[in-house]
Design a protein around this nucleic acid. Structure first.
Length: 574
RNA sequence: GGCCCCGUCGUCUAGCGGCCCAGGACGCCGCCCUCUCAAGGCGGUGGCGGGGGUUCGAAUCCCCUCGGGGCUACCA
């Protein structure tokens, strides 16, 4: 074992042209010679046929291409080898490949965001693929939610299930024939083998040998003879297909973490397909990455232990004739919830829908999520997505897990709300007012005028749009419900004289605008009754808005109108 | 248990051997502004897990240790 090999920590700056001399890093994994082959072949097929090939792995072309000069940074492919048909394919191809189970969660969104930013930064392609190979868990509803969520967030994709693309289909449930074929070829080549052991049998063997029963598959079926396999089959035993893992250490230079390696023998032969033939994630994920020309895989750290298996699969694919270049991997830090645990998909605070309903702006949520592992600068953390795309650098992504902090998320969102123009804020808050049943769809002219008038007052006092709805409710509701705590505190008997004086003053007003209201109220209550402003205005505010917290009082009354304002004061008088 | 990853204010981070008796943000505390709540402005609180080494010099490099986390399915 080489003790000098850098471990655990990437040499800082290693990916930015400050690599240590070769002699100092004896066991750096070999970098893939070329990650463009698929793209180029794709370009050729494309150009020749004018449409995507049905099976991309069936052919090949002799494209000339350069080796990228920097890890993590593909510049461009060469031309496709056809004079007059020069096509420059994006050198960077990344993907977002959720499985449609349950509601989209923030961990997923974060992964999508980083891939999107990486693609946009490098002028590459962002591919959206659906990994629906588990019929028992996948739902069409979840699939729709995924599309809807990404659209809402504004993370636009270049190829995907809804828009197609040159290497589709982009739903794995529609690629079954490809998987079946690859499994067959892997089996024929001896790269994979049939494994008859059941989980119980594997555990029993570990127990018998005095090992921990949780050790996992023991490669017991590796060298089964044809006769032995036949005997199993004769007894009606089904077999999963497993990939034969190499005997060597598997290592790679992680885009986020630097050198990572798994000792030889530490990863058991893994299952590519179920006994009933269903292909599984460990096969379809890397296979489709290969077939779709994915150059960089940015995903959660929870998938890091599966990387050696994927690297092994890529090698096996190459040995059976695929032009499959291993992508570069970058494992993003986990998003944690309360406590130190990974944010569970089922945790309520993980649900994207929740933040949407709460009134997060997509750009605000995204900005906060970006902060979970990345910083645009040391003195700034509010930025737009286009700024992020321009500045994003995978080498500057932190490898520490990050806790989702709702308070900070809302603070960042509040900053984005304040960045909106008044018109934009009004437009964004309107759907929330509509779903609260406060205004019509579309809003009436009167309602629209109230929204526009309240927008500048409300925008600077809220961090999420749902708060704005609560703050604007009094303007639209016909029967105001006064908050009981507020009423108890400010609308007691001692409020009577204050309210009466206010009504008197306001009724005498000839013009109804905030300046006149302010002058009248101050004259009547502060000068007239000798009250402190706090005492004077609290009952009025509660009577008019129903709450102790509201937009500025005079402006609020101006918007509400003379009649409704005075009616509410009278109502509070009882 | 095994394999792997990670350790800078409460939280998210900046830091890539001297610019750092560690900077920013959120939070928290105080003040200013003020009709409430915010926003905004100003100020404050608070951290390199521990121990060894390398070096003239370590938050930064190495080792050990402690702690946290992930994975360990015929889910993805």
């Amino acid at each position: 074992m080489d003790r000098d090999r850098p471990r655990h920590r990437r040499p800082r700056g290693a990916l930015r042209g400050r690599r240590p001399a070769a002699a100092e890093r004896p066991h750096q994994p070999a970098r893939p010679q070329c990650r463009h082959a698929d793209l180029l072949r794709l370009a050729c097929h494309d150009a020749a046929a004018g449409r995507p090939p049905a099976h991309r792995y069936a052919g090949g072309c002799r494209a000339d291409h350069r080796r990228p000069d920097r890890v993590g940074l593909h510049r461009r492919t060469g031309d496709a080898g056809q004079p007059g048909r020069r096509r420059v394919r994006p050198a960077v191809r990344v993907r977002f490949c959720p499985s449609p189970t349950g509601n989209p969660h923030v961990g997923l969104v974060r992964a999508a965001l980083f891939n999107w930013a990486f693609a946009r930064h490098h002028g590459g392609a962002f591919v959206f693929r659906i990994e629906d190979t588990d019929a028992a868990r996948d739902t069409e509803e979840s699939y729709e939610q995924l599309l809807d969520s990404l659209r809402w967030l504004g993370l636009d994709w270049d190829e995907g299930p809804d828009i197609g693309g040159p290497v589709g289909p982009y739903r794995q449930s529609q690629r079954r024939d490809i998987y079946d074929d690859v499994v067959r070829r892997l089996l024929e080549a001896g790269e994979a083998y049939e494994s008859f052991s059941s989980a119980e049998e594997i555990e029993a063997r570990h127990r018998a040998a005095g090992h921990d029963p949780k050790l996992g598959y023991d490669n017991a079926d590796r060298e089964l003879t044809a006769a032995q396999a036949e005997a199993f089959r004769a007894r009606g035993r089904g077999a999963v297909v497993r990939l034969r893992m190499p005997a060597e250490e598997v290592s790679w230079t992680d885009l986020v973490r630097g050198p990572v390696s798994f000792a030889a023998g530490s990863v058991p032969d893994f299952v590519l397909a179920r006994a009933n033939g269903d292909p599984l994630y460990p096969l379809v994920n890397p296979l489709d990455d290969a077939l779709m020309g994915i150059t960089h895989v940015l995903r959660g750290e929870d998938l890091l232990p599966s990387t050696p298996r994927q690297i092994a699969l890529y090698a096996a694919l190459r040995r059976i004739g695929f032009d499959a270049s291993t992508p570069l991997f970058g494992h993003l830090p986990l998003v944690r919830g309360e406590g130190n645990r990974k944010l569970s998909k089922r945790a309520p605070e993980a649900s994207l829908q929740l933040y949407r309903e709460r009134g997060f702006l997509p750009e605000g949520l995204l900005n906060y999520l970006a902060l979970l592992g990345w910083a645009i600068a040391d003195d700034r953390d509010v930025f737009s997505m286009s700024e992020m795309a321009a500045a994003f650098d995978i080498d500057r992504v932190s490898s520490n897990p990050a806790r989702f902090d709702l308070q900070k998320a809302e603070a960042i969102n509040g900053s984005h709300i304040r960045l909106l123009s008044v018109e934009e804020f009004a437009a964004r808050v309107t759907p929330y007012l509509q779903s609260a049943g406060l205004v019509a769809t579309p809003p009436s002219d009167t309602e629209a005028a109230l929204i526009d008038g309240a927008a500048p007052l409300v925008a600077e006092r809220v961090t999420v749009l749902s708060e704005a709805v609560d703050m604007m409710r009094f303007l639209f509701t016909t029967d105001l419900v006064v908050d009981s705590d507020a009423a108890a505190k400010f609308l007691g008997t001692e409020a009577g004289p204050v309210l009466r004086a206010a009504v008197d003053a306001l009724e005498r007003l000839s013009t109804w605008d905030s300046a006149s209201i302010e002058a009248a109220l101050k004259a009547a209550l502060v000068d007239g009754l000798g009250l402190k402003p706090r005492q004077a205005f609290a009952p009025i505010r509660v009577a008019v808005s129903g709450r102790t917290v509201s937009p500025p009082l005079y402006e609020s009354m101006d918007l509400l109108g003379r009649e409704r304002s005075i009616d509410r004061l009278c109502a509070a008088l009882g």
